[in-house]
């Protein structure tokens, strides 16, 4: 926190936090990503949208090494991603990820879900990790659920626990892969609120989402993907009012219609 505001003062914030250069990814003979490049600055919020199968998930999964890119270069917080275990650990320790299906650990309580990473990876003592976990549970507004098991919570609460679990690793970057797509409509806003608040705190974020209201409020940059390519990249005002390509216009008219 102190560091980011300090950087902002010195006007160093225009430094790239994530650099993706010409990466490609194939599954068999299917090209999921074709020569994709993307730069995300410190504190920047990028919202990625696009039709199903366009490679959105594949792109952000490449960024924290869950998928292995075939070609190109990825640099995260000055660490080159090379798929050696030390490089993976360096990259993942600065990147948090939130999944569509929450992926909480069902055999652990909410608090244990949150403290596992800090204790095992960051070598915090259990009491310190507990304190940290409670602080982040407050932040996602469910401290009272600390001792419950994931399946006792609603979907919206589970996703907020998943966000808190990532935040407990104190990452510099948060990746979200359709965090509200598996939720009942009435729970979507409680998750988006937490994400908006996080955005306000200066976190660098890449969000794959089709929640365009959220995107308009939070995004610094909109990215539209189709067929494994970034087709359009623009600030939201321009993106929504005057999309540069036919494909993007089509997509937006479909998604904003309902």
């Amino acid at each position: 926190m102190v560091k980011t505001s300090f950087c902002a003062m010195l006007n160093l914030s225009a430094k790239a936090m994530i650099k993706v250069e010409n990466i490609s990814k194939t599954f068999g003979d299917f090209h999921a990503l074709k020569n994709v490049s993307l730069e995300v600055l410190t504190g920047e919020k990028v919202v990625v949208c696009g039709p199903s199968g366009s490679g959105k998930s594949t792109l952000i999964r490449c960024i924290n090494g869950l998928e292995r890119h075939d070609e190109g270069l990825i640099e995260v917080a000055d660490n080159r991603l090379t798929h050696t275990s030390s490089s993976l650990r360096a990259v993942r320790s600065s990147v948090g990820m939130v999944f569509q299906q929450f992926n909480l650990f069902p055999h652990l309580t909410v608090k244990q879900n949150l403290t596992l990473g800090p204790v095992r990876t960051r070598k915090l003592s259990q009491p310190d990790a507990d304190k940290l976990a409670m602080a982040y549970l407050e932040r996602v507004r469910i401290p009272e659920q600390a001792d419950k098991f994931p399946r006792q919570l609603s979907g919206g609460q589970q996703q907020r626990v998943a966000i808190a679990r990532s935040l407990c690793m104190e990452p510099q970057i948060m990746l979200f892969d359709e965090p509200t797509s598996a939720l009942d409509p009435e729970m979507i806003n409680e998750v988006l609120d937490v994400m908006s608040e996080l955005a306000g705190s200066g976190m660098t974020m890449i969000c794959v989402t089709h929640e365009m209201g959220f995107a308009k409020r939070v995004a610094d940059t909109m990215v539209f993907m189709d067929h494994g390519e970034i087709v359009e990249k623009a600030p939201p005002e321009q993106f929504f009012s005057n999309p540069g390509t036919e494909r993007c216009r089509d997509f937006l008219s479909k998604i904003l219609a309902h």
């Binding site: 650990r89 993942r92 992926n103 650990f105 990532s166």
Partner: peptide, 27 residues
């Protein structure tokens, strides 16, 4: 065990041993 459990364990940068010990094997 669901693939998502491995991905979640990776995303909080657990080592292979910790992931097996605390996430995969207990389940």
């Amino acid at each position: 065990i669901d693939k998502g459990q491995y991905e979640a364990a990776h995303s909080i940068s657990l080592s292979y041993t910790d992931m097996m010990m605390y996430v995969i094997l207990p389940q």
